[in-house]
Design a protein around this nucleic acid. Structure first.
Lengths: 343, 343
DNA sequence: TTGTAAGCGTTATCAG
DNA sequence: CTGATAACGCTTACAA
């Protein structure tokens, strides 16, 4: 059986059926106000009958606008698609929804190494602008996009650079409310598992919020640096192991990422230390994985629907040569079980 | 500061610089064999100097091919982007990678309710074909695409229909190896948490693999139907609660989805029942969330890199009016902790 | 309010 | 091997 391919119907066919010129069809369908209501209806009916859709390539060639945004997700080299930070997937979904609400299409690509790096969507007239999101850790990729800065219209999430148009979580505030919560729960000797690596700006910002809140509460901030180069959960595991072996007492942990927190909890569990009874734990990003851990992980949750929206809106403004002001995405405390002392 | 927008350079500019005609530029750059090596080099050098990129809209208009695939992710109505099955996100990533390897662009949209449903990518010449993936449960959405079957070139994953071009996990085989594993671990009174709802074909297939293996091992298959309409983890929780209250003894659970399995484990934990000591548990899909549960969840893992590749390859064949044969994605057993009796 | 015609930037046909 | 030239299917002056 051969599938009958649909015939191509153009605005000329619609014009013929409606008994008008082709340019009238174009105007009628695009809502040009100079067209009479009667004509518009006749054209619309003809278009409906013929199942007519405008050829987007012709439209774009003629108008010079693509009504498309390119979204690049930066991942680690050779990274398994299952290991991509779930936060970035959710953000991708939010971006698609926000773009769709503005009637924009979204072109997606996952990029990691030299082979895959590509920024010329505007040069090829495939998109009007670019949203780049993803892991801060792939420095090669960010350097590549940073170097293209003058040639592209873009907004990014997760870049290690400050001299770009970015949108970010309110990381400082997240550190503040996480710490305030632990203090309110009665924890006092609160440790922060973080990295002050200047490339991981977001971690340093979260630590700062923590440290300031500790000092404000008359407590001593204690930073415990995670080891570089390990998977996040291993970083959490090893950090807890090292703290315990050092003999420094602590009764709570604020980890700057959920995966680190989950690793820390696993290590505590293996050693028979109760969470939240002996040690309270709070993470960051509110991954779904944290909902299934035992106990469920308390975390800081960015409003990432808003994050997607801000990325899209700010990009659209940049495309229009306008300036945008909002760059910080609000966060809120999501209390699950790992930080709540019974009683 | 006004950003200097890049000037548009066309093949005419390249032609002028290289001292050839515009059509020669086109041929040289597209690798036409009739062009002399000397000319090709001159043209390539001119293009490089001018930072020339072909206007894709003109190319597509002229050639009629878009070199773009549209990917539609079907989600539940009003579903939070964080609640989207992580498996579908990973699959999306794998599809993007596979398409990219074939030099295709990917246009992504998340669709749920009437407002967002849209299948006319080919009519608008935005894409050469369509991949539809996502939750079986949004019947409205699948009905919509099913109705478009004659007008679109597409391949799907997760559809409740059998009369379409689909790619699926080898669900039956997954049920078999999950059950064989539990039996090998010494479990005998193995329960299957599933739904035989004909809309959830994949669940019924997994159950069949389980049931057959049980019978082959001289054991009695025991189906415990999950309740409709609840979130997956609640289905797992309530199923375990009801089984326990019924007093029917069991020593293991094969849940047809990881989220159901995680819910079941949470309920067992709350009731002080040890996994895997008292009860062994195996899930399906190998979500990352299962790696962080306590104990980590044993699961059946589809090769979803291959899944993405098969979807893309099969679609490209369909676009070429060719027939594809491979539709089943192989699965493997991923042993984590929840099914391993300490020896 | 509508029609005519130019042109967006390519590829492809046809000569030479 | 290379150069004219005619589309591809629209939008948008400019005319009427």
């Amino acid at each position: 059986v051969v599938t009958a391919r649909k015939v191509r119907v153009t605005s000329f066919d619609v014009a013929a059926l409606a008994g008008v010129s082709q340019s009238t069809v174009s105007r009628a369908l695009s809502g040009d106000t100079s067209i009479s209501e009667a004509t518009r209806r006749r054209v619309a009916e003809a278009a409906r009958q013929l199942d007519y859709f405008g050829n987007e390539n012709a439209i774009r060639l003629r108008t010079g606008r693509t009504n498309t945004l390119a979204v690049v997700v930066i991942i680690r080299e050779e990274e398994d698609k299952r290991d991509v930070n779930p936060f970035h997937y959710s953000l991708l979904g939010a971006i698609c929804a926000a773009a769709s609400a503005r009637r924009y299409e979204v072109l997606v690509s996952f990029q990691s190494g030299r082979e895959t790096l590509f920024a010329h969507y505007q040069d090829q007239r495939k998109a009007d602008g670019l949203i780049v999101i993803g892991t801060t850790e792939n420095r090669t990729a960010w350097d590549y996009f940073h170097a293209q800065n003058d040639n592209i219209t873009w907004v990014c999430w997760g870049s290690p650079f400050d001299d770009l148009e970015w949108v970010r979580s309110d990381n400082h505030q997240g550190g503040v409310i996480a710490t305030e919560h632990l203090v309110a729960q009665g924890y006092r000797r609160i440790l922060c598992l973080a990295s002050l690596d200047p490339q991981q700006t977001q971690f340093a910002e979260r630590y700062e919020g923590y440290a300031q809140t500790m000092r404000d509460a008359g407590l001593e901030p204690r930073l415990f640096e995670i080891e570089d180069g390990l998977p996040r959960e291993e970083q959490g595991r090893s950090a807890v192991a090292r703290v315990l072996e050092s003999g420094d007492g602590f009764d709570a942990v604020f980890a700057v990422s959920d995966l680190i927190a989950l690793g820390a909890m696993a290590e505590l569990h293996d050693r028979g230390i109760a969470v939240p009874g002996d040690i309270g734990v709070v993470g960051f990003d509110a991954l779904r994985s944290g909902a299934y851990s035992i106990p469920p992980l308390t975390s800081i949750e960015p409003d990432f629907d808003l994050a997607g929206k801000m990325l899209v809106e700010n990009l659209l403004m940049a495309i229009d040569d306008k300036h945008s002001e909002s760059h910080r995405v609000p966060v809120r405390l999501l209390v699950r079980g790992s930080s709540v002392r019974r009683g």
